[in-house]
């Protein structure tokens, strides 16, 4: 496997200012707070976390759909944060996004063909070539070509997601950011889409950044997995390593909380107490200390460093 880094993210931060109503003090939500990661060419990096952990915001920052408050993102060695609008437009073709909701992410008034064609138009592709590319893409994602004149509402959720995938593939991007691409789908359809994504990767060598809340899905599809909590990366390791030797207490709890469809899998349950604190007033020190079963005095004060414990296994915890 190639180990070249396609994406290198350092100290990425996104703070949102939220007004609490007229004349009230504005508060700052730290949606993403100092995230660093690298994505290697050809791999799938999974990012997992519960709602409000900043995983989707991270994806949008990397797509530059949102502007970061701080930090750098190097794509093939270039800092994308410094790209001008026109440069960004030119380079968009290298990184594309697959969205969560296959119902909302397709324009209801455009035919399938037009939807998939749209990215091709942005690079001014000739009509004949465009049509050929659209047929190829439809074939790649398993939608019969005869359906190209239909509207999105004529398709089921799974088929729509295939159309969304075809659109993302249209420009042969190098990196695909998939934001919860299967969360809205039924299990049997989910499996179809996961297989499709993996087949496409094998065939075309895409790099995926796979964002999801479902740890079993993320683990299944990813080579490496990063676990986020309240805007920060808690742990990042090879997928199997993370599953077999989770080091961070949050990862351990998260793993044990997944309901497994196997009645013989009697595992030790770690049920976390309490709720996820609000990101506009995150706990001091380690953000997880309010729910951590092994938190100490130090965790309340000192933010743990995100450091490499083993080869390629990073964790942010004082107690490891």
């Amino acid at each position: 496997m190639a180990t070249e880094e396609i994406l290198k993210v350092e100290g990425l931060k996104k703070y949102f200012e939220v007004s609490n109503g007229f004349l009230r003090k504005k508060s700052i939500v730290k949606a993403v707070d100092d995230v660093s990661l690298t994505v290697k060419r050809g791999e799938t990096l999974g990012i997992v976390g519960e709602s409000g952990c900043g995983k989707s915001t991270t994806g949008r920052l990397l797509m530059r759909l949102l502007d970061a408050t701080e930090g750098t993102v190097h794509f093939e060695g270039e800092n994308i944060m410094e790209w001008s609008r026109s440069e960004l437009k030119k380079r968009r073709r290298d990184f594309q996004m697959i969205f969560q909701d296959p119902f909302a992410s397709l324009n209801p008034r455009m035919k399938v063909e037009e939807i998939i064609e749209e990215p091709l138009l942005t690079i001014g592709m000739e009509k004949k070539e465009r049509k050929e590319r659209v047929s190829q893409l439809l074939q790649d994602v398993g939608i019969p070509e005869s359906y190209k004149g239909r509207f999105p509402h004529e398709f089921s959720g799974g088929q729509r997601q295939r159309i969304g995938i075809a659109r993302a593939l249209a420009l042969k991007p190098k990196l695909i950011i998939a934001d919860e691409p299967v969360a809205a789908l039924d299990v049997s359809i989910q499996a179809q889409i996961i297989n499709l994504l993996m087949d496409l990767q094998k065939e075309y060598g895409f790099t995926y950044l796979f964002i999801a809340h479902d740890l079993s899905v993320v683990q299944y599809i990813s080579d490496r997995v990063g676990v986020m909590y309240l805007g920060q990366m808690m742990e990042l390791a090879e997928s199997d390593e993370l599953y077999e030797h989770p080091l961070h207490p949050y990862t351990q709890a998260l793993l044990s909380a997944i309901p497994v469809p196997d009645i013989h899998a009697k595992k030790e349950k770690i049920t976390l107490t309490g709720e996820v604190p609000s990101p506009d007033n995150p706990p001091s020190g380690c953000r997880f200390h309010t729910r951590c079963p092994i938190a100490t005095e130090r965790c309340k004060q000192e933010v743990p460093e995100f450091r490499e414990i083993k080869n390629g296994h990073y964790v942010a915890c004082h107690e490891v």
Partner: peptide
Amino acid sequence: SVPRPGSRERLKP
């Protein structure tokens, strides 16, 4: 169809 934690077997949708 459900991926199981720790398993890498291809899903059978």
